[in-house]
């Protein structure tokens, strides 16, 4: 903001829908950066010019792509009962014990298997970190997307309909917002049984309130805009107005907080894993690896440190990219 390029940035749009809203779109067709008018190419072009954001975007892309392929291989390996398929991309089998290498320090000797050292039973830490990536990626994507969907449905209807519906929906949102996330996840996994799925469901059930508040604020401010009133007067149904005007116009800023939020989900998920919530014994998970490694710290620093650094690197990448997108869509978020 205030950087010379902001004025150009406010024009960035993801969905064609915005162009149907004349009050926003018309005035700035005159000069466009890089000759691009809209869409993903504009973001790409913009991110490319910022080295820091570019490295963040690159990290995110590598993380997501690797996770998708690796996750697919893991599923396929499980389905075909052929475990070696799931280790295709990894330096070594993450479950093999290397005898004589228990708690061996990082070394270049057995490159790349021993690059990050070995754990207490001689399993390669690098392989285990890579093997765990898909679970974090899946958790972050599922939870953020579900939060956007639920938050959008409740927030836009609260803001657009207003009155009592607004009052009731917002009180429910507040009640959900008050729950301490980690405590509720602990309680749920305690009652429903400890598992990945339980943590996913709990986080999905409780992650949406901030999005609902945000969408409500957007809907409230958009409701009184000229083009929305015009389309209401011309007899468009509420559902159509919401779909064609309110939703496309409020989704842009959401992209920024959602990008930042992927990192938050990964942090929360690995914090829970650190406490032993939602992890299956034996299956590698960044948070639980760090927790196990801590009992050998500080002499065996590599065991706890590298999984923690994996978490940190992914979260930093997401927030570098998210910060940039937030600058681009302009302005800060109001709840």
């Amino acid at each position: 903001m205030g950087d010379g390029d902001t004025n150009r940035l406010t024009r960035f749009r993801l969905f064609k829908g915005r162009q149907r809203s004349p009050s926003v779109a018309v005035p700035d067709q005159a000069e466009t950066p890089l000759g691009e008018t809209s869409g993903i190419r504009f973001i790409v072009g913009f991110v490319r010019r910022d080295k820091i954001a570019l490295s963040g975007a690159l990290g995110v892309a590598i993380f997501i792509m690797f996770s998708v392929i690796q996750g697919f291989l893991e599923l396929l390996g499980g389905y075909l009962r052929n475990p070696s398929l799931s280790y295709l991309l990894l330096p070594s089998d993450p479950f093999t014990f290397h005898f004589g290498l228990e708690l061996a320090p990082p070394s270049l000797a057995n490159f790349p298997v021993g690059l990050l050292g070995y754990d207490e039973t001689g399993r390669s830490i690098l392989s285990r970190i890579l093997y765990a990536a898909p679970r974090d990626a899946l958790a972050s994507i599922l939870i953020v997307v579900s939060a956007i969907v639920i938050g959008m449905a409740l927030g836009i209807s609260a803001g657009y309909i207003g009155g009592w519906a607004d009052e009731i929906l917002m009180r429910i949102t507040d009640a959900f917002l008050a729950f301490p996330l980690i405590l509720l996840a602990i309680a749920m996994s305690l009652i429903l049984g400890n598992g990945y799925l339980v943590v996913l469901i709990t986080l999905m059930a409780i992650w949406w309130p901030t999005y609902a508040r945000f969408f409500r604020a957007q809907a409230l401010s958009l409701k009184s805009r000229g083009y929305v009133e015009a389309s209401r007067l011309s007899g468009l149904s509420s559902a159509r107005i919401i779909l064609r005007h309110i939703f496309p116009n409020s989704i842009d800023p959401i992209v920024a907080i959602a990008t930042l939020d992927f990192g938050n989900v990964i942090l929360t998920y690995s914090t829970l894993a650190f406490l032993g919530i939602g992890v299956t014994v034996g299956v590698p998970e960044w948070g639980s690896m760090a927790a196990q490694g801590l009992s050998y710290a500080p002499r065996v620093w590599w065991y706890a440190l590298f999984p923690a650094i994996a978490i940190m690197a992914v979260v930093v990448c997401f927030s570098l990219l998210g910060d940039r997108i937030q600058d681009m869509v302009g302005g800060r978020i109001s709840y």
Partner: peptide, 11 residues
């Protein structure tokens, strides 16, 4: 702030 915010709290 990125360093301390992105690091897992236990770290």
């Amino acid at each position: 702030y990125l360093g301390t915010w992105a690091a897992p709290p236990f770290l």
